[in-house]
């Protein structure tokens, strides 16, 4: 799944042997969920310093180059800059540095927008840790296992995981198809990258409609193919892979949860 197709970056499993790669996907899922939630509680620059140190420490343990984690931020620089600027110019405060019409630049605004920038960059960079170190199928297995207790309340855990597996499997196929449709449009003068907004919208519609139609056709074909291979749902199924929770998974989860507890408590320090 990790790779480029049609110039669009896909979910990026980074295939190396590392202590983080070897962890049970359930430990990584729970740890990541807690860590990302914890980031929302951080409200101090010095705590963010520790969050980044912790995040890059885990990246180092996972043998993933930091540039790889930060690559996701690069694609969102414009969006981050705009969000940051808006936040900076509309946050009220006591120490006004500049004022024009309804826009106000305050010390508080600068501080808040920088904290928000640090939060967003941390979320974007470190959320990749999960997909860098876990294959899509491990993720689906982990998710199925974690959702299994909710089955008694009617949550279709197996079906949810199967849906995710299939969605991940179809991502490169649909991207390749989108790429093909884009080239077909371009060869007939329709280009998404140029022309007026209306022209681009028309080109987009002409691309999205066949893409959607083909996706539905593929889904129908796949459903028949799955049925032909005796698929009748989760009942009585035996998965090829077996998840095994080890002591190192407990240890890793305790470390992450401990750090998250610190992130939450830091708000009152």
């Amino acid at each position: 799944m990790g790779g480029k197709r049609g110039g669009i970056r896909l979910g990026a499993y980074y295939p190396v042997q590392s202590p983080v790669h070897g962890l049970d996907p359930r430990a990584k899922l729970l740890g990541m969920l807690a860590f990302l939630t914890g980031i929302f509680w951080v409200d101090e620059f010095w705590v963010f310093g520790l969050v980044y140190a912790f995040g890059f420490g885990v990246l180092w343990l996972a043998k993933i180059p930091p540039t790889k984690a930060l690559a996701a931020v690069r694609g969102l620089i414009f969006l981050l800059a705009v969000t940051c600027a808006i936040n900076m110019l509309v946050t009220p405060g006591e120490q006004v540095l500049w004022e024009w019409e309804f826009l106000t630049l305050t010390m508080e605004g600068i501080e808040r927008s920088l904290l928000m920038l640090l939060r967003l960059v941390a979320l974007i960079s470190f959320s990749g840790l999960l997909t860098f170190t876990t294959t899509p199928i491990e993720l689906a297995d982990g998710m199925e296992s974690l959702l299994l207790p909710f089955k008694r309340w009617g949550l279709p855990a197996h079906e949810f995981a199967m849906m995710m597996t299939i969605a991940l499997r179809f991502v490169p196929i649909l991207l390749a198809e989108a790429d093909k449709l884009m080239k077909a449009q371009r060869s007939r003068g329709g280009d998404l990258a140029s022309g007026s907004v209306m022209k681009r919208m028309k080109t987009l519609v002409a691309m999205v409609v066949p893409l959607l139609f083909n996706a539905l056709k593929r889904a129908d074909d796949l459903a028949i193919a799955m049925e032909a291979r005796a698929y009748t749902g989760g009942e009585g199924r035996v998965s090829l892979r077996e998840l095994r929770w080890a002591g190192r998974d407990t240890l890793a989860l305790i470390v992450v949860l401990g750090f998250v507890a610190f992130m939450v408590v830091s708000r009152w320090l």
């Binding site: 597996t165 499997r169 193919a225």
Partner: peptide, 11 residues
């Protein structure tokens, strides 16, 4: 079936 891409389930 005809199209291998539409019948392969696994990753």
């Amino acid at each position: 079936f005809q199209n291998p891409d539409n019948q392969i389930v696994g990753n």
